[in-house]
Amino acid sequence: MVKQTTASSPLLQVEDLGKTFGQKPPVQAVRGVNFSIAQGQTFGLVGESGSGKSTTGRLVLRLLEPSAGRVLFRGNDLGKLGKKELRQERRHMQMIFQDPYGSLNRWMSIRETLEEPLLVHGLLDPAGRKQRVETLLNEVGLPKAALDKYPHEFSGGQRQRIAIARALVTEPELIVADEPVSALDVSVQAQVLNLLLNLQESHKMTLLFISHDLRVVEFMCDQIAVMYLGQIMELGPRKAIYRTPQHPYTRALLDSIPGRGKKELPRLKGEIPSPSAIPPGCPFNTRCPLAFDRCFREQPALYELSPGHVSACHLAEAEGQPQGRPNNIAMSPGTGA
């Protein structure tokens, strides 16, 4: 699918975002993440389980307090907003969760669920709310009869449609969708993804799309960031990531997609290390088939390979230009060309 790229100022800017959970031992879930999303774009966040995708999504919406860095939404630093202002700002940014049943209040009917965002933000009068809820329900492909039912009366796919409707009801500008289809049957995944794409088009929304499935991300996203152990390893336009991936981790992930032509690298060995014990140097060095001595000493900077396509790999140094902003705040000295 072809989408237009508007060259306006970004709707969302994430700067040096970091989150550490707990003390003994500290879990570094997100480390020095930078990206920005332009209005109307879909930005994909991929990576294995535990790479910090969900945490990043929560930080972006400030459902979690970051340990470092900041998030600018519509030019405003969300961290500077008071409690009430932040709550009011939530009207413009919403989330779709992986588990639709868990994310819906099962004591509330669908009507109450969908009216609630309008109600708590003081939008529309009762008649207008009713109208809006019915329109949206129709848009997500559910019958009007669904309104007076409760979440347990629906299938997984239908519940996710309800959750999508709830996220859209206040006409937000940004939606964070955290693995919105990975809990669903394969047979309905495509329907829900198509629904999301159509809605995004018709409502002119910006989407931060989180997934561990590279095929889904390819289908959905304009820009893609590959995360590993809380860091962005490679970031770029979809074409660049899928046609000319640079980072060995990205290449290994692409190799693991069944039926995708020749394999570039040997299979990845081992498992993703624990985020409470991130290896020194390049975080990927324990599994990288191309790792050499420098990878164990030095954390790679982000190198720009082509406009908007960056990779955090020492091997990219020869090909690319070091980018102004380092990938990680705790970068070792002497890095970069």
């Binding site: 919406l61 459902l63 009207r91 989330m95 868990g102 994310s103 708590v120």
Partner: peptide
């Protein structure tokens, strides 16, 4: 619970 977080994310006081 996730639904509580979801409620917060919607902006429920």
């Amino acid at each position: 619970l996730l639904m509580v977080e979801a409620g917060r994310s919607v902006g429920v006081p």
